[in-house]
Write a protein that binds this DNA or RNA. Structure first.
Lengths: 347, 347
DNA sequence: TTGTATGCGTTATCAG
DNA sequence: CTGATAACGCATACAA
């Protein structure tokens, strides 16, 4: 019999609470923030009103007054191209870590055509700090952020990261470890399946660093190594395998940072009647779940996405609290987890 | 010789622009919004100043004044549990569609312990509208949003969705189509690998609707069907296969909405020396990329995540513009793409 | 075509 | 311990 009224129309500002509780606005404000003592009785009356009409302070007004938004910006790659499992791990862990600190996360797809979103975030004072991912060796967004004075942390690092906060994985070392592991197994001819030629061309950090680590480790062990670039999808992985088979038939092991290409690579192998790791070993750098879901389970350096995302948030909060403090960074080199995709070299 | 100064300290409000351009604040405001004519000369002078010091209006102040934030809220499942490929597809496409409309997206992980984030979004007037995903048949967040008066759209729908805007995939129909496809291939005994028992217990919509569609289609075709619940990971998928093999050895085809379980299921099959689709057919509902990356490529109803995310944003924008208009919804039933994981029943 | 004054909802400063 | 009042930066109704 009782119609359900939408609470929509009742106005809920701090003045209304004050009116209903019979106190002044500032008293309500202080009762909420606890920044100055309020009598138990008044506090109780205020709390009762707040609970009754479900008041919460207006975020925009508070942001305007306080000069901070309690929001972090997270700049992600343009969403039209599928995000890799690793990138998704970062997004999830950043959101999670931010939520633990009672901070919200504003997503900004950037790098594509709409850098309007990025500009809004940087210059509209919409966030207290920014986390940037998918860093290039020379990254104009880093330049932009640096000159904006907005605190920021990057997941990945530029060629000259001095003075910026960042957290990254040590790709050269990880790739080198994979190479050494394969060399120890007797492989003499290795291929690196890198990310796409486009990414390499625009100076995408992990692609360049993986190549550097591969080249050096291969030379160090006196192996022959070939480098292939490959787009982030199964079809590209498949044609990458064809290329390998046609032009480098002596290759017995592949190391990669391109997880998205692996299903296609594996499909190519299967079609050619080759079995992993009997005929070809596979090793790489990937998120743990991804490596474990792969068939056979992938020998890989497992990227600690959760830890990296959480660290990025921690670093950013430090930087927001003390913008002038010296920039810190974190370079992780997780061990290579031996699974089922690597074995002794054939013959 | 010229030190690189951070632009940080220069104040950049509309008054400062006005002062430097020698006009009043309102003129600057109108020059920006174009809501009243401004002489070409003054406009040019103002624009010059703006370009010079890189001014952009303060989002908080604008939100406070206008009563809208130009931001959409996106409520995602708690990020500690890995998001499925489908869920990620929604996030990406919503962000993309919002960016096209010059809107930002605020992420709110909810459903776990911290519903503080959800409450902030709902009641702090931080967003103009909300997109909710992972809907249960009875969903308290929907109730909460409805009584808050904040415009919202759900991806998925409750048992009684009347009066709410939503977009969803027709799970009963899709699962039924899979069943019919398998029945046509001669399979007589089918299994449904559902999402986890926990999700089913809390009334997760897709799990219940998939079950309903399966049960009905199986009955209609006079088949025998068993239903298994399975957590969202490879290990669970593997033990799910063991269970199938032990307790239901007559099953020759599996239909599933649990993409995350499939790698494990497939690993179990392999270990038992069974080949898909020769010994066992697999069909399901999944994101297209996921189905194509699977080995063998998965016969599946491909969820149009991009279209769904974009539609959710469209519906939400409509609803924000006209909150009293009748609620619209979209129920999609994409066709089953025949790939390599289904074949004639064995023997 | 432009300038002035007001209020959005908070928090902080100053009186009491 | 509490109340009035002034900002925060912007958009707009009103006046010129």
């Amino acid at each position: 019999m009782c119609a359900v009224a939408t609470v929509e129309s009742v106005l809920m500002n701090i003045g209304e609470i004050a009116r209903r509780a019979g106190v002044s606005r500032s008293t309500v404000s202080y009762a909420l923030s606890g920044k100055r003592p309020v009598t138990g009785e008044t506090r109780r009356r205020i709390q009762a009103v707040i609970d009754e009409i479900g008041y919460r302070p207006n975020a925009a007004a508070r942001a305007l007054k306080e000069g901070r938004t309690r929001t972090l910006g997270l700049v992600i790659p343009p969403a039209n191209q599928r995000l890799t499992d690793m990138q998704l791990g970062f997004v999830a862990s950043v959101v999670e870590a931010a939520a633990r600190a009672d901070l919200d996360v504003l997503l900004s797809p950037s790098g594509g055509d709409h850098d309007r979103s990025f500009e809004r975030v940087v210059t509209g004072r919409r966030v207290d700090g920014v986390i940037l991912m998918e860093i290039r060796l020379e990254d104009e967004r880093v330049v932009r952020l640096r000159e904006s004075g907005l605190p920021f942390v990057t997941i990945g690092h530029t060629a000259n990261p001095y003075g910026t906060c960042w957290v990254d994985v040590d790709y050269p070392t990880l790739i080198a470890r994979c190479v050494h592991h394969l060399a120890d197994l007797g492989h003499r001819s290795l291929a690196l399946v890198n990310r796409s030629a486009e990414l390499l061309a625009i100076g995408y950090g992990p692609a360049h660093r993986a190549l550097a680590g591969f080249t050096e480790a291969v030379a160090q062990r006196g192996l022959t190594g070939v480098e292939l670039t490959c787009a982030d999808d199964a079809a590209a992985g498949e044609s990458c395998f064809e290329q390998l088979r046609d032009q480098h038939p002596d290759v017995t092991a592949v190391v990669t940072i391109n997880e998205a290409a692996l299903p296609g690579l594996q499909r190519g192998l299967e079609r050619a009647g080759l079995v992993v790791p009997r005929d070809m070993s596979l090793a790489g750098v990937a998120a743990r779940h991804w490596a474990e879901d792969f068939r056979p389970q992938l020998t890989a350096a497992d990227i600690p996405t959760v830890e990296m995302g959480a660290s990025a948030v921690d670093l950013l909060l430090e930087r927001i609290a003390a913008p002038e403090a010296p920039a810190r960074h974190l370079l992780l080199a997780p061990p290579v987890s031996l699974r089922a995709s690597t074995g002794p070299a054939p013959r």
